[in-house]
Simulated assay, not measured.
Amino acid sequence: MTRVLGVRYEEQGDLTYVLPDQSYEIDEFVVIETEKGPRLAQVCLASREVDEAKLPLQMARVKGPASDRDLQIYHDNILAAQAGFDWVKGQIAEHGLPMKLIDLVYALDRSHVYISFAAEGRVDFRSLLKDLAQHFKARIELRQLNQREEAKVYGGLGPCGRALCCSTFLGEFPPVSIKMVRNQNLSLASNKNLGACGKLMCCLSFEDEVYREAREKFPDVGTTVVTKDGQGVVTGLDILGHTLTIRLDEKPVSLRYELEEVTVYG
């Protein structure tokens, strides 16, 4: 077991485990010594023991608590990054590259500049990279974001009216599949299943296990069943309501029945 501390480098960044040098309080600011320069981070998870098998081989270490000077440098870097953002945006246009600039972040000592962008496919940014390195006088790291990561950076409101899960509490994106949509009896043709990123909503994965366990108690649509009103065929399921819609053989109607009122024929 290894004692680790959970931090975020940015307000909407992923939870990252680092090796602590001492105990820290939640929301306290610390300086992390990474391979790509020192970075300011905020503690979001108290130190705890974690199995080494669940941790990356290389982990950054906490250098110490952030001083007032560290915080001032961080805020100065934000202002410099805003100016640098506009310059980089102009360079992308000048090079005619099909890139959408998303974010620009300095390492605390400005030895590295982290630049994220979105693009439809692969981009040959070698000539741009040379100009960036010459301008910033620092190591440049260009990272291409996918649609989910882009939505996480921008944030926004989901169909539920709350802030996007990815930009608030999600550390990593959960796997989401068409099968989850089917399990929850949702329409595959509806855009209501799509998040701000245009992909299936992450929250579909939150309830999938509940739906799968409940679904095992139900017969499939098209199954012949017996009810108190006679034999019929299942035409619809309401998993949460524990009811089925049955089209009766002897009557030209479809009726709703509780799950306990239905028996599979044969």
Rank of each mutant, 00 (worst) to 15 (best):
I140V: 12
V31A: 02
I239T: 06
K179C: 09
C202S: 07
S254T: 14
Q12F: 15
I115H: 02
G84T: 09
K217V: 11
L45R: 15
I32N: 05
V253T: 12
F173R: 00
V50C: 04
G121F: 12
V62R: 03
D21L: 03
A151M: 03
T224G: 07
I78G: 12
R212H: 11
L129Q: 10
E260H: 14
D238R: 11
V4W: 01
R143H: 11
D14P: 14
Q42G: 05
V43Q: 04
E25G: 09
V62M: 04
T235K: 12
A163K: 12
F173N: 01
V233D: 00
D249V: 13
Q72V: 13
L128Y: 08
G155N: 00
L97I: 08
L108R: 05
Q12H: 15
L104Y: 08
T223K: 01
D131P: 05
A107M: 06
N185G: 10
F125K: 06
E150H: 08
L132I: 09
L55P: 00
L128T: 08
R162Q: 14
D51A: 15
D86R: 13
L145C: 04
E216V: 13
N183E: 14
F136R: 00
S190P: 05
D238H: 14
D86F: 15
Y114R: 07
G121Q: 15
K179D: 13
V18E: 07
S111T: 10
V113I: 09
E149C: 05
V31Y: 03
R182L: 11
K137E: 13
L255V: 06
G155T: 04
E10D: 15
G13A: 03
T243F: 05
P159E: 08
G266A: 04
S116Q: 03
V221Q: 07
C203E: 07
A107G: 07
A151G: 06
A138V: 05
L194D: 02
C197H: 04
V105P: 07
S47D: 13
K192G: 14
L71G: 01
A83I: 14
N146W: 07
V113L: 02
R212I: 13
L186G: 06
K54I: 10
Y24P: 02
S205V: 06
Y265N: 10
K179Q: 14
Q134E: 15
F173A: 03
S47A: 15
T235C: 11
A151I: 08
D131L: 04
Y154I: 12
K137A: 14
H95G: 06
S205T: 12
M180L: 07
Y74S: 09
E172V: 14
P252A: 05
R39P: 08
I78P: 05
R48T: 12
L164N: 04
K137P: 01
T2M: 14
D249G: 09
Q144V: 02
E33V: 05
P219V: 04
L200C: 05
E149N: 06
A196S: 14
R122K: 11
G222E: 00
L97M: 01
G198N: 03
Y74T: 01
K36W: 10
L19M: 11
E11M: 09
V31K: 02
N77E: 02
D70V: 06
G232D: 02
L164G: 02
R48N: 10
A138K: 07
Q231I: 13
E49S: 12
E216N: 12
K63C: 11
M201F: 00
A53M: 12
S47K: 09
Q184L: 01
Q42P: 03
